[in-house]
């Protein structure tokens, strides 16, 4: 035990103690705090809120809450059913196609197993897919392919590729090298190496992520209808336009329930594969 000299303790006794700050430099700390405050003031001031409009809206808000407690599933039952089925169909088809395409792209985007040119191509596909919002992609695809679920299906597939390939590639890049090398050491071909050395390590995670993506695809499919790309969104939009809150509430409740079921299923399946 090498204690400090008595004088060191004497200096400390009687002095105020302050918790050391996260940012060491006083100048920088105050600068950041001040900057944040100025930004907040400017930002809040630039938001125009018409409180009278909000006040009027409270009434409608209350109506909506009431509609949630008493949703109307029947009046537009056909529209809701058709919209929902279309959403689900888009989700399924897009998930299958998206996942199938993500696997080769994910393999190609993993630096430790793909050659550099392939890596760069795959990474740029991922970057483009991730940078573009689903709804923007949908707008462009509707302009090109016309209205209908095909545009929605393509949008979701494209978005799935960006999401899943990136995570899959990261998973492969962080996998246990020793296991993979052990398989390589047996003299296997590239395809066998992927099959025995890489696949077993990443499959459980891939399944978990895929199910999670199915969940996201369903939620996204609900808004694609807003721009004409098929699904329940169109019905929902119409319901809002006509102030039919009880129908809108019914649709939202169905979405929530389906998402809950999907989440529950994904929990069960993930528990089983791991």
């Amino acid at each position: 035990m090498t204690g400090p000299t008595v004088s060191e303790l004497d200096v400390l006794i009687g002095n105020k103690w302050k918790k050391p700050s996260l940012i060491k430099s006083d100048w920088l700390r105050w600068g950041l705090t001040l900057g944040a405050l100025i930004y907040l003031v400017l930002a809040i001031n630039s938001v125009e809120v018409s409180w009278s409009r909000v006040y009027e809206g409270l009434d409608r808000g209350a109506k909506f809450v009431k509609a949630f407690l008493n949703p109307d599933f029947t009046t537009r039952a056909t529209d809701i059913r058709e919209g929902m089925i279309e959403s689900i169909i888009m989700t399924i088809a897009a998930s299958v196609v998206g996942i199938a395409i993500s696997i080769p792209i994910g393999l190609g985007a993993a630096r430790n197993i793909a050659p550099l040119p392939v890596y760069l191509v795959c990474r740029s596909i991922i970057a483009v897919s991730r940078a573009l919002q689903e709804i923007i992609v949908a707008i462009l695809l509707v302009a090109i392919f016309g209205f209908g679920p095909l545009a929605g299906f393509l949008t979701l597939s494209f978005a799935t590729i960006g999401f899943l390939s990136k995570l899959l590639a990261e998973e492969i890049e962080s996998m246990d090298k020793v296991q993979a090398e052990a398989v390589k050491a047996t003299g296997s071909r590239w395809s066998q190496w992927i099959n025995y050395g890489v696949q077993p390590q990443v499959i459980p995670r891939l399944i978990g992520l895929s199910i999670y993506r199915v969940d996201i695809n369903f939620r996204e499919s609900a808004i694609l209808g807003l721009v004409g790309a098929g699904g329940i969104g169109a019905t929902l939009n119409t319901a809002f336009d006509r102030y039919e809150y009880d129908t809108a509430a019914a649709i939202l409740l169905i979405i929530i329930v389906i998402v809950m079921v999907l989440e529950y299923l994904s929990g069960v399946i993930r528990a089983r594969v791991q």
Binding site: G3, E8, G14, W17, K19
Partner: peptide
Amino acid sequence: RRFPQSDVDNAYRLLDRVGLVHMA
């Protein structure tokens, strides 16, 4: 973190006793 001064002094004494006052 505004503890009474006596507590802070006490903490320094104890840390000194176990040889860790420079780590406070």
